[in-house]
Measured scan of single mutants.
Amino acid sequence: DIIVVALYDYEAIHHEDLSFQKGDQMVVLEESGEWWKARSLATRKEGYIPSNYVARVDS
């Protein structure tokens, strides 16, 4: 799995977006363009995230 960590807070604009806080970790489910589908490890919610707001966690 690709794990990313939030670099900034993000408040969902559309209902399919995923809100998150700086430091939150998410599993990337699908990478396509600038918006990635991800699942929050904390809340288990899924939605689209702006890929420029996150960084990959080296395992």
Rank of each mutant, 00 (worst) to 15 (best):
I2V: 13
I2T: 11
I2G: 06
I3S: 03
I3V: 10
V4N: 00
V4P: 00
V5R: 06
V5D: 01
V5C: 08
A6Y: 01
L7M: 08
Y8F: 12
Y8C: 15
Y8H: 09
Y8M: 11
Y10Q: 01
A12D: 02
A12R: 05
I13C: 14
H14C: 14
H15A: 15
H15E: 15
H15I: 13
H15C: 13
E16F: 14
E16G: 15
D17F: 15
D17I: 07
L18E: 00
S19H: 04
F20H: 01
F20A: 01
Q21H: 13
K22A: 11
G23S: 03
G23Q: 02
G23A: 03
G23H: 04
D24A: 05
D24T: 06
D24Q: 07
D24E: 14
Q25V: 15
M26W: 02
M26R: 01
M26H: 02
V27K: 08
V27M: 10
V27R: 07
V28K: 02
V28A: 03
V28D: 00
V28E: 00
V28H: 00
L29P: 00
L29V: 08
E30N: 11
E30P: 03
E31S: 15
S32T: 12
G33R: 05
G33L: 04
W35D: 03
W35V: 07
W35Y: 11
W35G: 04
W36C: 09
W36G: 02
K37F: 15
K37R: 14
A38P: 00
R39A: 07
R39K: 09
S40Y: 04
S40C: 11
S40F: 06
S40N: 13
L41N: 05
L41R: 05
L41V: 10
L41K: 06
T43W: 03
T43C: 05
R44A: 13
K45A: 10
E46G: 03
E46R: 04
E46L: 08
E46M: 09
G47Q: 00
G47V: 03
Y48I: 07
Y48Q: 07
Y48R: 11
Y48C: 12
I49C: 02
I49G: 00
I49K: 00
P50Q: 06
N52F: 10
Y53E: 01
V54W: 02
A55N: 07
A55F: 08
R56W: 09
V57E: 07
V57Y: 10
V57T: 09
D58I: 12
S59E: 12
S59C: 13
